[in-house]
Design a protein around this nucleic acid. Structure first.
Lengths: 334, 334
DNA sequence: TTGTAAGCGTTATCAA
DNA sequence: TTGATAACGCTTACAA
């Protein structure tokens, strides 16, 4: 491995001079600069970020990305956004898939602390676990994605989920639906609360009463969607549309509905949320609410690195706009 | 941040003693050990892997995972396998999504070299690019996933793709099909070559002649599947089944077939390859060939770390077995 | 414009 | 069983 010393020796200068050249310091003679650069090139020199991080007191030049499941296309896309921007700025990204386990979340906190990352993006945060508080008070900056804590003042980036919920239900009502159900995520997630709030707002505004038999909080999973939809169908009440708080739930709902011999959107219209890659697949073509998740990833990486490098103290609390994507799982009520 | 020195001071011992305790050295008094451990605990001490890596001359305790696209569920699952095992052993995983760009592959090589990773898993490797050769000759160990180089002796882990191809076609023939097409991946990928080989072998063994109009090499993408299937359908020749060399291609093929007003599996049976999560979705339920990709990920991490830590010189060249997963896109020919 | 020297947080070698 | 000391590769005052 070539070190700065090797270059120094070969160039007949001191290591500090080499360091200056490599860091584009301005106080350097043009000739020395050229010579050192040439030799560094010749020797295939690669910076050692370990050593650099150590002396600079910062990190290795890496971000930690904590998510519940990389096989969920939603998080895969987030990861791409984070990674692309991080890379542009010379940073790496540690993938931390918690498999939705709080224990693993905590372990990752330790792992990333040891590796001296420069920032952490928490998309999996059990917001009210003490570890988040500790992290938030530590010297390494964090940003929460789509999770907002009532108790903690943290950096966060989210989308306007109330708006998203509204978009979904307005679409359904515009199509003539009035008997609309809701299947949400876990009750203690702010995203689930907000999407439900949007749902209820629009119903109220249209003087449609809410049938609490058709409002459920469950997991953000296909299984939960399947079970809940099945329950809805078994009731002796009319239901012509369901707004599902994420696409996985929607997929499960479709599965349950079709298993009953019913048709989507013929008998029941379905709207999802997230616009994950599944939603665009042939045969699926799910009407859904899109989130600019790739951009959110980019922005998170951006902000974190900025906070670190420029030591700005600004709080990042941004909100993105959702959008309606109409595909084939909703239709005009006859 | 607590350092080893802080602990030493508070415990009234030297830093070296603290280091020994923390690394479970045997030559340590029981009392000192207990005391130091307690104080370390009190002070919330966390190892600094940067410093450790520097002096040990090794890496930070991290692996690099280079893949073409994390949004492809196949690679997401690979990533989970790699990560799970790496974490168990105290390692982190750098996610490196190349977006199928050779340029990015090369950039990652540099990035990971700087970050001093302990090993690299290449699932995206353009095997014959010089950078792979350089890497293979460097001090950091690499393992190739499902890519085999004719020119280079490298570590690799793959599945028996000839067998996989055979499984797919045997299934189709067992169902009574004889007019079977093939849509493969890029011709220069060993995986694509092998799957095709399996296809041809079985056809020969059953004395079915191969119609070269129905054998194509394309990209491993949905788009390619769609275009190729459309071409097949437009020919004035009978075709009742298509073996697609990955699930994305299969999805594209299904799309094209149904767009023509035809039915899968009613008119054409489809077999995919990989068994990615898409294949299990309601409405899709693709018959396909499964690869134990999660296990392959685990194994790669395992081997890489072992090579590094125990400085074994063994070559890793393993082959896993594929399996047939029958779902709803193939049927018995009447 | 350049060099010298100290130091980042560890581990390893050698003495004690 | 423990402590000094040097070293890993780099950056950065401070001097020259």
């Amino acid at each position: 491995m070539t070190t700065i010393k090797d270059i120094a020796k070969k160039a007949g200068v001191s290591p500090s001079t080499v360091s200056r050249v490599l860091n584009n310091s301005s106080l350097i003679g043009a000739e020395t600069r050229k010579k050192v650069k040439r030799i560094a090139e010749e020797l295939d020199y690669e910076k050692n970020d370990l050593a650099r991080g150590l002396v600079k007191g910062g990190g290795v030049g890496a971000l930690g990305l904590i998510i519940p499941n990389i096989s969920n296309p939603f998080y895969a896309e987030l990861a791409q956004g984070v990674q692309d921007r991080a890379n542009e700025l010379g940073y790496g990204v540690f993938l931390c898939d918690t498999e939705a386990s709080l224990d693993k979340e905590r372990q990752f906190k330790t792992l990333l602390t040891r590796k001296k990352v420069d920032g952490m993006i928490l998309a999996s945060a059990t917001v009210d676990d003490p570890y988040v508080k500790e992290l938030n008070e530590s010297s390494i900056p964090i940003v929460l994605i789509s999770r907002v804590s009532r108790n903690l003042k943290t950096n966060y980036i989210k989308v306007d989920d109330i708006k998203g919920g509204r978009l979904a239900v307005e679409h359904l009502i515009g199509l003539g639906h009035r008997d609309i159900g809701f299947i949400g995520g876990p009750e203690n997630f702010s995203s689930a609360q907000d999407r439900r709030k949007g749902f209820e707002e629009v119903l109220h505004e249209n003087s449609i009463s809410i049938n609490s038999n058709f409002v459920t909080h469950a997991q953000y999973t296909q299984q939960a969607g399947k079970e809940t939809a099945k329950k809805y169908l078994s009731r002796d009440e009319n239901i012509t549309a369901i707004f599902c708080a994420n696409d996985l739930i929607a997929l499960g709902a479709i599965e349950a509905i079709e298993k009953q011999g019913l048709n989507v959107p013929g008998d029941v219209s379905i709207v999802g949320y997230d616009d994950i890659s599944y939603a665009r697949l042939p045969r699926i073509m799910l009407t859904t609410i899109s989130q600019p998740i790739y951009e959110i990833g980019q922005k998170s990486a951006d902000k974190l690195i900025k906070i670190r490098e420029e030591e700005v103290e600004e709080y990042v609390q941004e909100e993105f706009e959702p959008g309606l994507v109409v595909r084939d799982t909703t239709r005009q009520l006859a």
